[in-house]
Amino acid sequence: MPDGIIPYFARDIGFALDQQDTLSTQHAVFSKSPPRQGYYVEIPGMFHINFTDAPAWTPLAQSLGLSGPLDGRRGHDIVRAYTTAFFTGHLTDGPAGLLRQPPPWPEARVETRPS
């Protein structure tokens, strides 16, 4: 195999380990937030690129392993709902109910800091 070429499966394993390290770091920061002041929303099945429009541009993104296995539109719907709930609750003093209840999507995991 030529130098610098990493087999796809090896790249995938490295990505999974790097992704777990990132999630662990993010969760550690969340766990230090003041009571009732932090939210931790995790959507397994979404890669970093899923937060862009790229998965909607081409179905090849998922086939090539550039985006996660979660459908791009569904991922955007989930992120949009949680983003709206956060800003509604914190900028307009409206209800942030979605962040304070079990997720309506099986793909999403939400934690809040207890009081």
Results as ranks from 00 to 15, higher is better:
residue 1 M to F: 11
residue 1 M to C: 05
residue 2 P to R: 10
residue 3 D to K: 08
residue 3 D to M: 02
residue 8 Y to V: 11
residue 8 Y to R: 14
residue 9 F to K: 10
residue 10 A to T: 11
residue 10 A to W: 00
residue 11 R to G: 13
residue 12 D to I: 00
residue 12 D to L: 11
residue 15 F to D: 08
residue 17 L to C: 00
residue 19 Q to C: 10
residue 19 Q to R: 15
residue 20 Q to E: 15
residue 20 Q to F: 06
residue 20 Q to H: 07
residue 21 D to S: 13
residue 22 T to I: 13
residue 23 L to V: 06
residue 24 S to N: 11
residue 25 T to G: 06
residue 26 Q to V: 04
residue 29 V to R: 02
residue 30 F to A: 06
residue 30 F to Y: 12
residue 31 S to K: 13
residue 31 S to M: 13
residue 32 K to L: 09
residue 32 K to G: 08
residue 32 K to F: 00
residue 32 K to T: 13
residue 32 K to M: 06
residue 33 S to Y: 04
residue 33 S to N: 01
residue 34 P to I: 02
residue 35 P to K: 03
residue 36 R to C: 03
residue 36 R to D: 14
residue 36 R to Q: 13
residue 37 Q to M: 12
residue 37 Q to Y: 08
residue 37 Q to C: 13
residue 39 Y to W: 14
residue 42 E to R: 15
residue 43 I to A: 02
residue 44 P to Q: 08
residue 45 G to C: 07
residue 45 G to N: 12
residue 45 G to W: 11
residue 48 H to P: 09
residue 49 I to H: 00
residue 49 I to Y: 05
residue 50 N to C: 10
residue 51 F to T: 15
residue 54 A to F: 09
residue 55 P to A: 02
residue 57 W to K: 11
residue 57 W to R: 12
residue 57 W to P: 00
residue 59 P to E: 13
residue 60 L to T: 02
residue 60 L to D: 06
residue 60 L to M: 14
residue 61 A to T: 15
residue 61 A to Y: 15
residue 62 Q to S: 15
residue 62 Q to A: 15
residue 63 S to V: 03
residue 65 G to C: 10
residue 65 G to T: 12
residue 66 L to I: 12
residue 68 G to A: 09
residue 70 L to N: 07
residue 71 D to W: 04
residue 71 D to A: 13
residue 72 G to T: 10
residue 72 G to P: 06
residue 73 R to Y: 06
residue 73 R to S: 09
residue 73 R to P: 01
residue 74 R to M: 09
residue 74 R to C: 02
residue 75 G to I: 03
residue 78 I to W: 03
residue 78 I to F: 07
residue 79 V to Y: 05
residue 79 V to K: 00
residue 79 V to G: 01
residue 80 R to T: 15
residue 80 R to P: 01
residue 80 R to G: 05
residue 81 A to G: 02
residue 83 T to Y: 05
residue 84 T to G: 00
residue 85 A to T: 05
residue 85 A to S: 14
residue 86 F to K: 01
residue 86 F to W: 04
residue 89 G to F: 02
residue 89 G to N: 01
residue 90 H to M: 08
residue 91 L to D: 04
residue 92 T to D: 09
residue 92 T to G: 01
residue 92 T to K: 13
residue 93 D to M: 05
residue 93 D to E: 14
residue 93 D to C: 04
residue 94 G to S: 10
residue 95 P to Q: 13
residue 97 G to K: 10
residue 97 G to V: 07
residue 97 G to S: 14
residue 98 L to F: 04
residue 98 L to G: 03
residue 98 L to S: 04
residue 99 L to R: 04
residue 100 R to W: 12
residue 100 R to Q: 12
residue 101 Q to S: 14
residue 101 Q to H: 08
residue 102 P to D: 13
residue 103 P to S: 15
residue 103 P to E: 07
residue 105 W to R: 02
residue 106 P to D: 14
residue 107 E to Q: 14
residue 108 A to M: 08
residue 108 A to D: 03
residue 108 A to Q: 01
residue 109 R to N: 13
residue 110 V to E: 08
residue 110 V to C: 09
residue 112 T to C: 11
residue 112 T to I: 15
residue 113 R to A: 04
residue 113 R to L: 06
residue 114 P to E: 10
residue 114 P to W: 00
residue 115 S to W: 07
residue 115 S to D: 11
